[in-house]
C-alpha cells in the first residue's frame, strides 16, 4: 500500500512563499481573495532584543481519521487509495461543515464567483468547475504521473519532503519513525500525515539548532 505523507522542516523554511505561489498556479486557488491551499503562517516571538521569527507552512494534514470526512453529509470528501483526502466537486454542496470541523484550517469555500474570476485569471481550463469546499490534495494529478507536489518541487530550501510512509526506505518514513518529525495536535486522534520538524509555536533557532 501507499500512504503519501509530507515532512516540513521548520528549521530551514525561510518564508519565501514560493510554495504558495507554485500551489496557486498549479491549483488555481483564488489568491485575490486571500484563499490558499497552502499558506505560510508567520509568528514573531519574544521581546526586543530577544526576538525570533518563525515560519510555519500550513496545508491539509491528510488525516487518517479526518473529521472533515466524518461530517461531510454527501460523501464528497473521501480518502483515495494512496491515503490522500480529496473533495469530489460534483458531490459537494458547500455546507461548510468540513471547514468548521477541520482542526487545521485547511479548507476554504471556493465560491461561485471565484470560478468566473479564476477563468479570467488562469484560463477556461481550470481545476474548479463547480463551487465547493476546496483543499490541498498533495497535487495527486502530478504525483500519479511520477512528479512531486508543486510546493515540494519548488521549495528552494527543501523544507518540504514528500514520500510514502509505507516505504521504510523513504525519507519521510525514516524521519517519522525516528520521532524527528511530529504531527500537529496528535491528541485529537486525527492521525495527520503531515509532520513537522521543530515546534511551530516556538522559535526553532533558539532551542533546536
Amino acid at each position: 500500500m501507499t500512504r503519501y505523507a509530507m515532512v516540513i522542516d521548520l528549521r530551514t523554511c525561510v518564508g519565501c512563499e514560493g510554495c504558495v505561489a507554485a500551489c496557486t498556479m498549479e491549483n488555481h486557488t483564488p489568491f485575490w481573495h486571500n484563499r490558499f491551499r497552502t499558506h505560510i503562517e508567520e509568528q514573531v516571538t519574544g521581546r526586543y532584543p530577544n526576538v525570533g521569527r518563525q515560519f510555519v507552512p500550513r496545508l491539509c494534514m491528510h488525516c487518517e481519521q479526518p473529521p472533515c470526512q466524518d461530517v461531510c453529509p454527501t460523501g464528497a470528501t473521501y480518502t483515495t487509495k494512496e491515503g490522500v483526502v480529496k473533495v469530489d466537486q460534483d458531490r459537494c454542496i458547500g455546507c461548510g461543515y468540513c471547514i468548521i470541523a477541520c482542526p487545521y484550517g485547511a479548507r476554504y469555500p471556493y465560491e461561485r464567483d471565484y470560478i468566473k474570476e479564476a477563468k479570467a485569471t488562469f484560463g477556461e481550463d481550470i481545476a474548479h468547475q463547480k463551487p465547493h469546499s476546496d483543499k490541498c490534495d498533495f497535487c495527486l494529478h502530478r504525483v500519479r504521473q511520477g512528479m512531486l507536489p508543486a510546493c515540494v518541487d519548488t521549495c528552494p530550501l527543501q523544507a518540504r519532503i514528500f514520500g510514502d510512509l509505507d516505504d521504510p526506505n523513504s525519507e519521510v518514513a525514516k524521519l517519522v519513525s525516528a520521532g524527528k518529525a511530529k504531527p500537529l495536535r496528535p491528541e485529537l486522534g486525527t492521525a495527520p500525515k503531515v509532520f513537522y520538524i521543530g515546534d511551530p509555536q516556538s522559535y526553532v533557532g533558539k532551542d533546536q539548532q
Binding site: 466524518d70 453529509p73 460523501g75 464528497a76 454542496i93 455546507c95
Partner: peptide, 19 residues
C-alpha cells in the same frame, strides 16, 4: 447558505454526519 444546492441529491450518503 449552500454553495452548490443542486448537489443535494447526495445528501443522504454519509450516516456518520449529523447533517
Amino acid at each position: 447558505d449552500l454553495l452548490q444546492p443542486e448537489a443535494i441529491i447526495y445528501l443522504l450518503s454519509n450516516p456518520s454526519s449529523w447533517i
